[in-house]
Design a protein around this nucleic acid. Structure first.
Length: 624
RNA sequence: GGGCCCGUAGCUCAGCAUGGACAGAGCGGCGGCCUCCUAAGCCGUAGGGCGUGGGUUCAAGUCCCACCGGGCCCGCCA
């Protein structure tokens, strides 16, 4: 498709138009690509656009064109280019079938390195549906960059210090909670539940509050009993959390414990640099007396809300301070580095490393040209401070991006199911208040629904096959649901709505793929040809080919703008075009030359669809 | 008080970055389509003029300003 645009621009340039703007039309009635240069020139030349367009078109030398056949002038002054479909279709299908898995992914990332942090759920609870949004977004970015040729490292920040961990300590050590959850409940779910219970108790008890402060301080004491016990709990929760992430299709390279940002002295190195550059100051008096603050007075926006405390008067660091150190490390501008031990393996067999003081493994991350941090949009201000700080520290030439996404809230209906009354349309999730819906039960519900559907049509399937396919459908459904909406918009989650399997959903996508698989399986002949059977193809065929041709443009655009939902819409459009083709253009049973071409088209669709879904992380069953 | 995000059909949302050709989907409503490659599908029909008011422009859902409504953030919490 890009070729067509370039060709049109070239033709226009040859008539004397400078920098002609050519874009893909949104309606095929206007040809494949069109230009509105006549409007831009109208003012300069003081002539009506229509006249200018006519003149330009009359000057185009079509003998120099390849795939473009003709240009037409339309109503107010557009120039619409039409193409030789026979050539175009064959070109696209050849491209897809020749490149296979690689089709649609321009190699724009060769030699570039990206670090992505995502998930980063506090290790005191199970993933709720909002955390799943983070994981799916981050994992999709990983998949996209990887396919575009970037080298990518995935980090998961483990906040193992502070408040939320202290609450669990008190629950286990002082309030008599057992370390083993009741039968049927996972450890991460269990911790999430007791965290909410215990938090209320502690907040209303002065003795426990004091104990909590003691625990928080002890947590920074590397090697203490409290420190060790904490690592035990964190590890158990992490195991469960990551099994959920894996189920969602995500993978990780490194787990960075927040406590280790201090333990490995990354913070002290950064603190020294900040002091050297005069970016921080010590408050001698006033309400922040005894604190070290970062000066934000030079920042146009942040300055309006005052400077930020990095080191508290008791000498401990704030979350923002530790995050600045972590960010500087990510950008590769620190001398110091973490050490790791192997923590486990991803389902793909790759190792996951975790920071450890006496770790044996080094994992130099190098200089990232791009550091992407998938963090919800409530943290925009702290993230802006982090970005400001690392840029002042030299930034290493890479760019630090806060990929902000809105939270997931619960619908009124779901909130009421949890026994929460609300006047509004939705209610914010809160781990501390026990207002959340975990993602595992949602996937399980989807899986049950999928099984019911499978049983309706495949009474003869084995249990294993039903398990496998229903799991794929469930995962595809939840991922698509979380990826298709604008990251900047809040999702109001309603389990009833989300468990639908019809319409603009994951199953709709999978279904089109399965239909394609069936055609290829059942076709009596295996020979195919990318040469169209006719000068004029059916509209449905053209629409499908056109959509297939867009893929490289979409992928490159998304990599630049990080607009993930655009991949999701693209997948949906592809599926829609295929379903339309499926209804209107019989493959099996048509005349041999038609069948051979359509088989090639179905093959191409299946390949492209597989490529797109591999980026979205939607697992594809061959039957459903 | 300051900063940020959102406001498009009854409901859920796409389209806004690079303004352009009649404003699109899904769900729900109504009416159709399984002797034919899986109907988790397809087709038709009703339904909005894009929160409001200004402005820029040949052209504004898309850009600018103000206002209204909803949400988030401004802690020696993370």
């Amino acid at each position: 498709m890009k070729k067509v645009i370039l060709e049109a621009q070239q033709l226009l340039r040859e008539t004397g138009v400078e920098n002609p703007r050519v874009e893909v039309t949104k309606d095929p009635r206007y040809g494949e690509v069109s230009s509105s240069v006549a409007f831009e020139l109208a003012k300069k030349l003081k002539k009506p656009p229509l006249e200018i367009a006519e003149e330009i078109v009359s000057r185009i030398d079509f003998s120099r064109a390849n795939v473009i056949t003709v240009a037409e002038v339309a109503k107010p002054g557009y120039i619409n280019f039409k193409i030789n479909w026979k050539l175009f279709a064959q070109d696209i299908l050849d491209d897809v079938l020749k490149n296979g898995r690689a089709y649609g992914f321009p190699n724009i990332g060769a030699g570039k390195h990206v670090l992505i942090e995502h998930t980063s759920v506090n290790p005191n609870k199970a993933l709720h549906i909002g955390h799943a949004r983070n994981t799916c977004l981050g994992d999709t970015l990983y998949r996209l960059f990887k396919r575009l040729g970037y080298s990518v490292v995935i980090a998961n920040y483990i906040d193992d210090s502070g408040n939320q961990m202290a609450d669990l300590h008190i629950a286990f050590k002082k309030l008599g909670y057992s370390l083993s959850p009741p039968k049927g409940e996972r450890f991460d779910e269990y911790c999430g539940r007791i965290y909410a219970e215990v938090n209320k108790i502690i907040e209303n008890n002065a003795d426990l509050l004091q104990e909590k402060r003691r625990v928080i301080a002890e947590l920074e004491n590397v090697g203490s009993e409290t420190f060790k016990f904490n690592r035990e709990i964190v590890d158990l929760v992490l195991k469960d959390q990551l099994s959920t992430c894996w189920r969602l299709g995500a993978r990780y390279d490194i787990l960075n414990r927040e406590s280790d940002v201090l333990a490995f002295n990354l913070w002290s190195e950064v603190f020294e640099s900040l002091k050297e550059r005069g970016l921080v100051y010590y408050a001698e008096e006033g309400p922040k007396k005894g604190c070290w603050l970062i000066s934000l007075s030079e920042h146009p926006v942040l300055s309006k809300e005052g400077d930020e405390v990095l080191v508290k008067s008791d000498g401990t660091t704030t979350y923002v301070a530790r995050d600045i150190a972590y960010a500087a490390w990510k950008l590769g501008i620190l001398r110091r580095d973490f050490k790791y031990n192997r923590w486990g393996k991803n389902p793909d067999g790759s190792y996951i490393l975790i920071t450890e003081m006496d770790g044996k493994v080094s994992f130099p991350i190098g200089k990232a040209s791009l550091v992407v941090n998938v963090i919800d949009s409530r943290q925009k201000r702290p993230q802006a401070i982090v970005k400001y700080a690392v840029e002042k520290l030299g930034g290493g030439g890479g760019s630090y991006i806060h990929f902000a996404y809105e939270v997931v809230s619960l619908s009124k209906r779901d909130a009421e199911k949890l026994g929460i009354s609300t006047g509004g349309r939705f209610v914010q999730m809160s781990g501390r208040e026990g207002i959340y819906i975990n993602v595992e039960p949602v996937i399980n519900l989807l899986k049950e629904r999928a099984k019911e559907e499978i049983l309706k049509r495949h009474r003869d399937w084995s249990r294993e096959k039903i398990e496998d396919v229903s799991e794929k459908i469930a995962v595809a459904t939840i991922r698509y649901e979380l990826l298709k909406s604008d990251a900047e918009k809040m999702i109001i989650f309603d389990s009833e709505e989300a468990s639908k399997l019809e319409g603009d959903t994951g199953p709709y996508l999978l279904y089109s793929y399965v239909r394609a698989a069936r055609i290829l399986e059942k076709a009596s002949i295996k020979e195919f040809t990318t040469t169209p059977y006719n000068e004029e193809l059916e509209e449905a065929e053209k629409n499908l080919i056109r959509k297939i041709a867009y893929m490289p443009l979409i992928m490159e655009e998304v990599a630049n703008l990080l607009l993930i939902k655009r991949i999701a819409s693209y997948a949906n459009e592809l599926a829609k075009m295929f379903n339309d083709f499926y209804e209107k253009c019989p493959v099996i049973g048509s005349k041999e030359n038609i069948m051979q071409f359509r088989l090639a088209l179905v093959k191409a669709f299946k390949q492209v669809f597989e490529n797109v879904c591999s980026v979205l992380g939607l697992p594809l069953p061959e039957e459903m």
